[in-house]
Computed example of a mutant assay.
Amino acid sequence: MAIQRHFSNLGLNTKMLQLQAEMAYEEAVLRVHHPRYIEQLEQMSPLSGLIQADPDTLMGPHSHDAAYFAAGAGVQAVNDIVDGKYQRAFCAVRPPGHHAEPNTTMGFCFINNIAVAVQELRSKHDIKRVAVIDFDVHQGNGTVEIFKNIPDVLFCSSFQHPFYPNSHWNIDRPNIINSPIPAFSTGEQLMKIWEAQWLPALIQHKPEFIFISAGFDAHRDDPMAEMNWLANDYHWITSRLCEIANKYADGRVISMLEGGYNLKALAASVEQHVRALLEV
């Protein structure tokens, strides 16, 4: 709602087609997650109140459906873009997804939204070579776990280190580019990572489609981390990704919201991100 209000106040919402996503269908989710895990998510969903789904994650009566709507947004964006209805999409979804592993709830995440979208594209359409860029302040361990043995999926991730989840940051795979950043770094560190690591990897990979795990909790005002990024840093990195998309992927980009917990900073950062996607 904070993002929607901010966009409405700016009139930015008039520059976009706004859609209500449908829930992800079961087969799409099962391409990424184990059947028993998905059964457990449904069985543990409470009728009222809150339960502890894992040490970090609470689950309420509507969490299960919300997770399916979040994953469904990416599925819908994939199929709409391939059908030529639009070129780029920002999915303003919650709960986030990039910590969810095939059989594990983690870090507020139940379903790995970005992975579900990637596999929808790769399974249903004649597009296999994609890139996933994750600039959330926390490393996308779930996405690494899902794609670490799939060379056609390049995964590039920046994250505060050492920091949560501190589990997949040292995975050694040619298609996994982990870029740890020390606390209190500014966006200048991201620019250095782009030039030294991500840009060469993307040029070599030549992705046919780009996905973004768009977390905005590296902003200096976010309470969940200790970084010093500013809203304009998100415009900068998104513009660079759009340049790569225009060169190799017919401009096709899907961005899915991950973290971001100071509502004012979140709204301002998403504004800059979306302006770059719109190229306005």
Score class of each variant (00 low, 15 high):
Ala2Cys: 14
His6Asn: 07
Asn9Arg: 04
Asn9Trp: 03
Thr14Ser: 13
Lys15Trp: 01
Met16Gly: 06
Gln18Asn: 13
Leu19Asn: 06
Ala21Met: 12
Tyr25Ala: 09
Glu27Gln: 09
Glu27Arg: 06
Arg31Leu: 12
His33Asp: 03
Pro35Val: 07
Gln40Phe: 01
Pro46Gly: 04
Pro46His: 04
Ser48Thr: 15
Gly49Glu: 04
Gly49Met: 03
Pro55Asn: 04
Thr57Leu: 01
Thr57Cys: 05
Leu58Met: 13
Met59Gln: 09
His62Arg: 15
Ser63Pro: 10
His64Glu: 10
His64Ser: 06
Ala67Gln: 07
Ala67Thr: 07
Ala71Arg: 02
Ala71Val: 06
Ala71Phe: 04
Gly74Thr: 08
Val75Asp: 10
Val78Asp: 09
Gly84Val: 01
Cys91Leu: 11
Ala92His: 14
Ala92Met: 12
Ala92Thr: 01
Ala92Val: 06
Arg94Ala: 01
His98Lys: 00
His99Glu: 10
His99Gln: 12
Glu101Pro: 07
Thr104Val: 15
Thr104His: 05
Asn112Glu: 12
Ile114Met: 01
Ala115Glu: 12
Val116Gly: 02
Val116Asn: 07
Gln119Tyr: 06
Ser123Pro: 04
Lys128Pro: 04
Arg129Ala: 11
Ala131Val: 04
Asp134Ala: 01
Phe135Asp: 13
Asp136Trp: 10
Val137Pro: 06
Gln139Ile: 01
Gly140Ser: 02
Asn141Lys: 03
Gly142Gln: 05
Val144Thr: 13
Ile146Asn: 07
Asp152Cys: 03
Ser158Tyr: 00
Gln160Arg: 08
Phe163Leu: 05
Tyr164Ala: 05
Ser167Val: 08
Pro174Tyr: 09
Pro182Glu: 15
Ser185Phe: 06
Gly187Trp: 13
Gln189Phe: 08
Gln189Asn: 03
Leu190Cys: 00
Leu190Tyr: 07
Met191Pro: 06
Met191Ile: 05
Ile193Ser: 03
Ile193Trp: 05
Leu199Pro: 05
Leu199Gly: 05
Leu202Pro: 09
Ile203Asp: 10
His205Met: 11
Ile212Asp: 08
Ser213Asn: 15
Ser213Ala: 15
Arg220Leu: 09
Met224Gly: 08
Ala225Leu: 08
Trp229Arg: 03
His235Met: 02
Ile237Met: 14
Thr238His: 12
Ser239Asp: 14
Glu243Pro: 00
Asn246Thr: 03
Asp250Met: 13
Arg252Phe: 01
Arg252His: 03
Val253Trp: 02
Met256Trp: 08
Tyr261Val: 10
Leu263His: 11
Ala265Asn: 10
Val270Cys: 07
Val274Lys: 01
Val274Met: 07
Val274Gln: 06
Ala276His: 02
Val280His: 09
Val280Met: 09
